[in-house]
């Protein structure tokens, strides 16, 4: 490839052709007016319209939902499904740490779904990997159906 300066000179002459490419006649007469009009429209837009302007995909989505009841129905079902899934999932997550707690040395209590471990000495031991502060002992007052004597103690994770 010849890259001598005079060759670039020819290229630069050819590139001058680009300077003669013109937009349609009169294009710039109203260019700034169109911009100012759009700015004014944006300033007077409702929050929903502004959201649509800032997120064109949202505007397209609203347009589709407006024009097609079927699409609106499907969209509603999907949103409701996601909402319900979220609620169910959040409940599951809330219960997760409680389930993770196990009763040590008292398998029968564990099977019964007990959430605290009662050792031989009746002291409550909590696994170090459980960080939840949920009131998991709320249903296990002294003299409860488990027959375990539970007393409030201050404790710290094992090994600390």
């Amino acid at each position: 490839m010849n890259t001598a300066p005079e060759e670039f000179e020819q290229l630069r002459k050819l590139l001058k052709l680009k300077r003669y490419e013109q937009p349609p006649p009169g294009y710039f007469n109203n260019f700034s007016t169109r911009i100012l009009n759009r700015l004014e429209e944006q300033a007077s837009a409702t929050p929903l319209e502004r959201l649509g302007q800032e997120s064109p995909w949202l505007k397209r989505l609203f347009g589709i939902l407006d024009n097609s009841p079927m699409a609106a129905g499907v969209f509603g079902v999907i949103v409701s499904g996601l909402l319900l899934s979220g609620i169910v999932y959040s409940q599951y997550v809330d219960q997760g740490p409680a389930i993770a707690m196990s009763l040590e040395g008292t398998p029968d209590l564990s099977n019964a779904g007990a959430m605290a471990s009662v050792s031989d000495t009746s002291a409550i031991r909590v696994r170090a990997d459980v960080s939840s502060t949920n009131a998991v002992f709320s249903g296990m007052m002294p003299g409860s159906s488990f027959g375990a004597m539970v007393q409030p103690v201050s404790f710290s994770p094992e090994g600390r």
Partner: peptide, 18 residues
């Protein structure tokens, strides 16, 4: 969708030479 060339392009000496 190229814009039309300005009529003056035909009179540009460099382009005429090209």
């Amino acid at each position: 969708s190229l814009n039309d060339l300005d009529f003056n392009a035909e009179h540009d000496p460099d382009l005429v030479a090209l």
